[in-house]
Design a protein around this nucleic acid. Structure first.
Length: 137
DNA sequence: GCCAACGTTGGC
DNA sequence: GCCAACGTTGGC
């Protein structure tokens, strides 16, 4: 299983909205970036990811699971854009703020730190473990 | 609200 | 195929 990180602006699509969708989940649509799309194409059902609030909050707030492989994005007719479906699994007992991540030497190579603009990113096994630890899991 | 970093577009 | 111009993102 691989790990990922999904980034969203609170005002666009928040963790609360994701949770409200329950096990039915929701498309991670609206991605118009080739790198992010390519990562979604690599995802498999059962892969897990962090849900990160960008801009105002700047913290990882929950864990999600991939429940559908990449398929055409329903919000556009442009065939280039695809997305996966994800559902919320659980909130983090202690959300992990960007400041904490940046302050941790072990996480200095995270994509979130190195390329903050990428909206869908891979997370390594060790990064996943460290972040779960910081989150109180 | 500013601006640096990055991605995309389009003219050549 | 290069690169200048432009638009967007997201941290600060």
């Amino acid at each position: 299983m691989r790990y990922w990180l999904f980034k969203s602006e609170t005002s666009t699509w928040s963790w609360d909205q994701q949770v409200a969708k329950g096990d039915a989940g929701e498309e991670w649509d609206g991605v118009r970036n080739y790198q992010a799309r390519n990562f979604m194409r690599e995802m498999k059902i059962g892969d897990r990811g962090f849900f990160y609030h960008s801009q105002k909050d700047r913290e990882i707030v929950g864990i999600v699971e991939v429940i559908a492989k990449a398929h055409p994005d329903s919000t556009t007719d442009d065939e280039r854009w695809e997305c996966v479906d994800i559902k919320s699994v659980m909130p983090l007992p202690k959300p992990v703020h960007l400041d904490q991540i940046k302050a941790d030497k072990r996480l200095e190579n995270m994509v979130l730190v190195k390329n903050s603009r990428l909206s869908v990113q891979p997370v390594s096994d060790s990064e996943w473990r460290i972040l779960c630890d910081l989150a109180g899991l």
